[in-house]
């Protein structure tokens, strides 16, 4: 899939790139008062306007399918307006070129997580709150993300650190009741909610599951689930959270029993042992148990219990 906000993050190969822009592209940028064109990455330019830096993605798209996806993503971005959602500053079409202008991001969550010195316990909770706020905004605009993972969350470090959710290339605004069918091709398996593996339609709960995986990853510093296939993934989920019982997943357990490759039913693991980082002295015991409850709420088998971000906020 071709996404407007894909890989917005710079890998700072800094060299002047004015000559790589075509004359008409350059004119369009100048018309819009952008100066100092530095190639940040692939077709993304870091430009300056007044005192602020912007990432401008220039897409030359004779390919119609790509053009369609770009059009869709930009129109989705246009309906969103929230500090924790990537903000489209401007967009223009000039001939075959589509220009999408964003505030310049400093990193993404995946890269940021690797930098252990910056990644303290306290900020994880704050990041989680920001990500959930962003998701709540998406959902209240009838938008499902469907493919949340750490590299799709951009990090902005201006006066304070802000997480912004990017990449809406699977999106359009859905009608309620949601009628959004599951497609295998969308979404990275490790962050995919279990009910999707059984062919349920998408719902707001699936995004919340992905956030749960991301939050766990912040603490583990590795993906919570890493299986390559759906079956392995289910086994991995079951061994952490326990095999769902009839009570939790009414009507689904007999089906589970019929899958031969599934491992025998398991009890849930004590999350405390999986997240030892949470145990050091000085960590408020309340926040530890809060974290456990919260993670359990995010990673609940039954989508009914983690139905919405708004509910979680009230807890």
């Amino acid at each position: 899939m071709y996404s407007v906000t894909r890989l917005l993050v710079s890998h700072s190969s800094k060299f002047e790139f004015e000559q790589a822009l075509t004359r008409s592209q350059l004119e369009t940028l100048k018309e819009n008062r952008f100066t100092s064109y530095v190639l940040a990455r692939a077709n993304i330019f870091r430009c300056k306007r007044d005192d602020d830096y912007f990432a401008i993605k220039i897409m030359s798209i004779p390919n119609e399918e790509q053009r369609d996806n770009v059009m869709k993503e930009i129109s989705v971005l246009k309906t969103l307006n929230h500090t924790n959602v990537v903000g489209l500053v401007d967009s223009m079409i000039n001939g075959d070129d589509v220009f999408a202008v964003f505030e310049y991001p400093d990193s993404n969550l995946q890269a940021y997580m690797k930098n252990s010195e910056l990644f303290l316990y306290q900020c994880k909770n704050r990041f989680l709150y920001q990500i959930l706020s962003g998701i709540a905004h998406l959902h209240s605009r009838r938008i499902l993300h469907k493919d949340l993972r750490p590299d799709k969350i951009l990090v902005y470090m201006k006066s304070s650190i802000t997480m912004r959710i990017a990449e809406y290339n699977n999106g359009k605004a859905y009608d309620v009741p949601l009628d959004c069918f599951y497609s295998e091709n969308i979404g990275f398996p490790s962050y995919r909610a279990p009910e999707l593996l059984f062919g349920n339609n998408y719902s707001t709960a699936n995004d919340v599951w992905s956030v749960g995986c991301i939050f766990a990853e912040m603490h583990l510093r590795r993906p919570l689930f890493s299986a390559g296939t759906d079956l392995e993934l289910l086994n991995e989920m079951f061994s952490l959270l326990g095999t769902p019982t009839e009570e939790i997943w009414p009507g689904k357990t007999s089906f589970l029993g019929s899958i031969a490759a599934l491992e025998p039913p398991k009890q849930p693991k004590e999350l405390r042992s999986v997240f030892p980082e949470l145990e050091p002295a000085g960590v408020d015991i309340l926040s530890v148990s809060y974290f456990h409850n919260f993670l359990l709420c995010l990673l609940h088998w039954s989508s009914v219990y983690c139905i919405s971000v708004q509910l979680n906020f009230n807890d």
């Binding site: 309620v176 949601l178 707001t204 708004q310």
Partner: peptide, 12 residues
């Protein structure tokens, strides 16, 4: 039923 978006519907 998560498809009904009960908690979001007013905002939506």
């Amino acid at each position: 039923d998560p498809q009904l978006c009960a908690t979001y519907i007013c905002d939506i």
